[in-house]
Write a protein that binds this DNA or RNA. Structure first.
Lengths: 117, 117
DNA sequence: TCGAGTGCTTCGGAAATCGAATCGTCAATG
DNA sequence: CATTGACGATTCGATTTCCGAAGCACTCGA
């Protein structure tokens, strides 16, 4: 499966609009998570796999080649993986989602306890 | 497949941390896109399908039940689908990603033209 | 009553994902 | 040296997910 890149046709969109490419890229399993787990610096392959709840190594490798291809991730000479500048930008763009997820947790748990009454 | 919700174990994380639930939810194909396409108000099933590049109706339905379950989407009496307050929060949290994708497009296209030289 | 437009379901095939086994390399150890 | 173990990475069969075309039940206007 081709790596989504802005300007080219992607899965689910023939326009190649950057946002659509991004939605395709991040709509693939583990990609959001991988970016998140790399937020603190370079991580090796096996360590990264562990951080991602022991996801399948074959898929991890596939995702990493996609992210390398998309220039979000780079591989250092010591073979560890790290976010590029662009990748860090993506991680920063994801930050509001972290805050939102907390809000989500509150709302959902509140709704659940109300259901119980 | 169970809908990811904060506080419960989700795919790829036994902790149930809200962020992990969110990463699972949004890491499923089309969920990011659906939230995005609902940003301007209620949309009917078939219209929504068209906006999502004619994605499979079976998967659309599955995604909608997930999003309903996760309280991001609600269905109005006239059967149209719309974002809840929480859903709008998620959409707002996605806004930085839109800006980032433009930056991504720039960087990648620059790199490509440099390759060509 | 008839078509056309809905929301939604079914189901067989295609594609993505999984996971365990395994390979080759390298560094440390004996 | 030989051995061991950790590593990045690959292979492959099984499972899960996704796709897409067809069709069903319903509504509404002609």
């Amino acid at each position: 499966m081709a790596t989504p890149r802005p300007g080219r046709a992607v899965r689910g969109s023939s326009t190649g609009r950057p946002l659509m490419a991004a939605l395709d890229l991040f709509g693939r399993r583990w990609n959001l998570r991988i970016v998140w787990e790399l937020r603190h610096g370079p991580v090796g392959f096996r360590a990264l796999q562990e951080r991602c709840d022991n996801m399948s190594s074959s898929v991890l490798r596939q995702r990493l080649t996609e992210l390398l291809d998309a220039a979000l991730v780079e591989q250092h000479p010591d073979t560890t993986y790290a976010l590029t500048e662009l990748g860090h930008g993506a991680r920063r763009a994801l930050r509001p989602l972290v805050r939102w997820s907390a809000e989500w947790a509150e709302t959902v748990s509140t709704a659940e306890s109300e259901d119980a009454r």
